[in-house]
């Protein structure tokens, strides 16, 4: 097994331990405030995926895959896609596809407002984040399986 598979040096590991939680938290903030401030599900999902990729680059692939395995990432991605489609189909109860079906949309500029838009943001975040992490993990695993032959 190569040395780089077990992660980088102690400096990188220490900095990663300090920053990776903040990056994950920032991604969640971007997703949840997507309807108030710039950002949204796509950008926030990529930031969340980047925090897991950060873990994988610094600590090696076994450590990161223990936190979020590839099967779990695929499951979350499918869940996000189905959730987005389900929200779209739920609009059919009120008449048409993608209807913003909440009667009371809440006060603007607060966290709980805008009807289905925060829910759509969360669905897209799950889809994008888990999907990109699954692609990255698959590429890393494929690369190392080629080297072992």
């Amino acid at each position: 097994m190569k040395k780089s598979d077990k992660g980088m040096t102690l400096i990188v590991k220490t900095i990663t331990r300090l920053t990776v939680g903040l990056i994950l938290l920032y991604g969640i903030y971007i997703v949840l405030h997507g309807h108030i401030s710039p950002g949204g599900g796509f950008a926030g999902g990529v930031i969340i995926a980047l925090s897991f990729i950060h873990l994988m680059l610094a600590f090696g692939k076994e450590f990161a895959l223990k936190k979020l395995s590839q099967a779990a990432a695929s499951l979350l991605e499918n869940l996000g896609a189905l959730m987005f489609l389900g929200i779209a189909l739920a609009g059919l109860t009120g008449g048409y596809f993608f209807l913003n079906f909440f009667i009371n949309k809440g006060k603007p500029f607060t966290l709980f407002s805008a009807g289905i838009i925060p829910l759509c943001n969360i669905a897209i975040c799950l889809k994008v984040g888990a999907g990109l992490f699954a692609i990255f993990a698959a590429l890393i695993l494929f690369d190392s399986s080629q080297e072992n032959k």
Binding site: G34, F84, L85, A88, S113, G115
Partner: peptide, 30 residues
């Protein structure tokens, strides 16, 4: 829509169908 961010209100409400297509593209790629 009640969303303060006009971009979010367009891509997820008025033009939600387009976003569904974009999500399908990413899903197929993965």
């Amino acid at each position: 829509t009640g969303a303060a961010n006009i971009v979010a209100s367009i891509i997820l409400d008025f033009r939600g169908y387009d976003t569904l297509g974009e999500a399908t593209v990413l899903f197929t790629a993965v």
